[in-house]
Nucleic acid binder design. Sequence first.
DNA 1: AAGATCGACAACCGCGTCGGG
DNA 2: CCCCGACGCGGTTGTCGATCT
Length: 341
Amino acid sequence: MGHHCCSKQKVKRGLWSPEEDEKLIKHITTFGHGSWSSVPKLAGLERCGKSCRLRWINYLRPDLKRGSFSAQEERVIVDIHRILGNRWAQIAKHLPGRTDNEVKNFWNSCVKKKLIAQGLDPNTHNLLPSHKANNNGCNLSHPKPTSVFFVNSPVKDAASCMDMNIPFSTLLSLLPNDPNISSSHFSHDGPNIPIYEQKNPNIFWTTEEQNPNTSFMDFSMVRFPISSPPSHPSGFGIVEEDCLWSSSQLQPIELDRQDDHHDEMLQPEQQVKKPQQEIIKAIEVEIDRKADIILTREQNNMDSSFESSNFGFDFVESAVTPSDMYCNSYDHGDEFAWEYC
DNA sequence: AAGATCGACAACCGCGTCGGG
DNA sequence: CCCCGACGCGGTTGTCGATCT
């Protein structure tokens, strides 16, 4: 039985033999792949085009980096995953020589387990409910730290945080349309920037007024509470999806929507109508740019203590420190450690 | 030594998107 | 505007070697 994608052909399945690899390499290096559907026939392979493509991309490509992931690569993966969720192809783009499949496998077999062992939900990068319960009030049953989360050295200077500002707008393509979410109040550190409030009482969530200890991600001037609810794997299911902010100009961009209550805060000239696809594209570009910054910083600052950063201290702190939990942080050589008690 | 289990990773499957006819 | 094929992506399954019992 052939694949549904190439039912007319007799195709072989399963692992590739060295002979098949050789044929495919020879064909592609000579002629290029062109249309993948025609590759099997031209290369003399009894495989479907899809299988050839996968074999080439994931295994035979000459620019692939083989071998296990470095600690640096691991950190990059965790950092980008925190923003993007399971968007393996996007993550892999920022790890030269690595494929989406490789990143995905590495995540599932290794990183995921590490995060769980640290009491973190691998989907949201927040503390697991069981750990929250165990750690409430620093009770006597846990006189010592129960888990330590090592993060790359935090940034202490605002300039770095500014550089590392996570594209607030980039998050939005990932967001669910959650009726429980509204932009309920605004911060005035700079331009009118909304801070969103999760209304679902079942979800752990605070606002600045409610709890002064609440952590915020600092995206340039955008203050963004990130005790993220589990409504989205990326952990950012907290912003109304139809309203975007340009990270460069910090202007809200309204998507097609009539009943939007954000209008009251916008000057008419600030309201920019754009097709959603166009905005999503722009967001993708911004994701790439920011992820490149992350990668560059990882590469440049492996040995420094307080100069390197993933997303900056605020980001990491808020990602792992719910406001109702007591946390200690301390310098741990070239890493920074959080201990939950 | 042999079978069971586990982990890593290769490969497959199904679905969404895009572009050409 | 619709259809269809190609492609890309993420989730899942399969395979195989290592380790355990």
